[in-house]
Each structure stands twice: as structure tokens, then as C-alpha cells.
Amino acid sequence: MLSFEEKLAVIEEFDELEKKEISLGRVNFHFEESLYDKKIVVYRLHPNGNGFVYGGEIDEVETDAKGMVNIKDYEADELRELIRASIDSLSLSPAEKDPVMEEWLNDADQALVLIREDDGFNVYADESLEGTFNTYQEAADFLNQEGFSRA
């Protein structure tokens, strides 16, 4: 297990993080360029070596209910990798993380394109917007109801 000082040294390698001292000798590190409301990447790093890294936008890690990963037993390379993944996950929009661009056809060979943009899904006929939906399933249901299927 890394000491507080060793963890602090690893975390301070990330120039994009801003250190914020909080109570009882603990520190947080903020990522002010986050595209999300979440800005704290390292949370409550304690002098005893315990602390958390935000992993709520990372598919490959197990998190608690708040999206945090306990880093008490992390080694330096593991900690670097987790922090980099956390920063990267807060730097990409949902459309960049999980892009969708699908062509849907009907029996008359007319085509519509389903694209994930920003926080939603848009359906286009050529350059004309046909519909905007909150979820992929809503967009797919619309396309199916209109007689289209994925090409």
C-alpha cells in the first residue's frame, strides 16, 4: 500500500488536477475542465492513505453508489491508470464515449440515419432532422413504428 505522500506524488503528476485542502488533513483534487457536473476526481485523500477516485463514467471498474473507487490498496501504476481513465471519462461527451451512427431502411429503400449527438439521439433524412429522442430505445421504437429496420 502506498503512503499518503506517495499517493499525493502520483496524483500531483496530473497537471490538469487542482488540489483543494479540506478538513482533517484530507485533500480533494478537482478537474475543472470536466464536461459534467462532477468535478472531483480524487476525493478525501486521507493522511492514513485511504481515499477515493471517481470512476462513475468508467465501465471497467467497480464503484460504490456514488461512483467512487476506494484506492487504499492501490499501487502507483494502478492509481495512475485509474486517475487517467477518470479524467478521460470526464473529458468526453456521451456521443464521443459511445458513438452511434446507423442507417435504417424501409421497404421502399428510403433511408434514415440515427446518430447519437450530445445527450440524445437524432434521426435524419439526408440533412433534415426528423426526430430527437432521449434514449436509443425511443429512437429505435420510432423508426420501427415508421416501418424502418436497421440496415
Rank of each mutant, 00 (worst) to 15 (best):
residue 82 L to F: 13
residue 132 T to K: 11
residue 74 Y to Q: 05
residue 21 E to P: 00
residue 8 L to T: 14
residue 96 E to Y: 05
residue 81 E to D: 13
residue 43 Y to R: 07
residue 84 R to D: 10
residue 68 M to Q: 07
residue 16 E to F: 00
residue 77 D to W: 03
residue 123 V to E: 10
residue 75 E to S: 08
residue 102 E to G: 04
residue 127 E to W: 01
residue 45 L to F: 01
residue 93 S to N: 00
residue 85 A to W: 11
residue 99 P to Y: 07
residue 141 D to L: 12
residue 123 V to A: 13
residue 66 K to E: 11
residue 150 R to D: 00
residue 26 R to T: 02
residue 40 I to Y: 03
residue 68 M to W: 11
residue 75 E to L: 06
residue 76 A to T: 04
residue 139 A to Q: 05
residue 19 K to L: 06
residue 130 E to W: 02
residue 22 I to A: 07
residue 135 T to H: 12
residue 73 D to R: 08
residue 79 L to A: 07
residue 14 F to D: 04
residue 118 D to C: 01
residue 132 T to L: 03
residue 94 P to D: 07
residue 131 G to I: 03
residue 97 K to N: 06
residue 39 K to T: 09
residue 103 E to Y: 09
residue 104 W to N: 09
residue 51 G to C: 09
residue 138 E to W: 10
residue 93 S to I: 00
residue 57 E to H: 12
residue 128 S to A: 09
residue 21 E to W: 00
residue 101 M to P: 00
residue 79 L to C: 08
residue 57 E to V: 09
residue 136 Y to M: 04
residue 104 W to E: 07
residue 148 F to G: 08
residue 135 T to S: 15
residue 92 L to M: 11
residue 139 A to F: 12
residue 24 L to Y: 11
residue 13 E to W: 03
residue 89 S to R: 03
residue 107 D to V: 15
residue 91 S to I: 03
residue 61 V to S: 05
residue 110 Q to G: 12
residue 41 V to G: 01
residue 115 I to K: 06
residue 90 L to I: 06
residue 114 L to V: 08
residue 128 S to E: 13
residue 89 S to A: 14
residue 127 E to Y: 08
residue 107 D to E: 13
residue 135 T to P: 08
residue 73 D to L: 01
residue 86 S to A: 11
residue 139 A to I: 13
residue 21 E to S: 04
residue 45 L to E: 02
residue 28 N to Q: 05
residue 65 A to K: 14
residue 148 F to L: 10
residue 24 L to P: 01
residue 137 Q to L: 07
residue 129 L to K: 02
residue 96 E to L: 02
residue 110 Q to I: 13
residue 113 V to I: 15
residue 44 R to K: 14
residue 98 D to W: 05
residue 16 E to L: 03
residue 30 H to T: 11
residue 130 E to L: 04
residue 123 V to I: 15
residue 138 E to H: 13
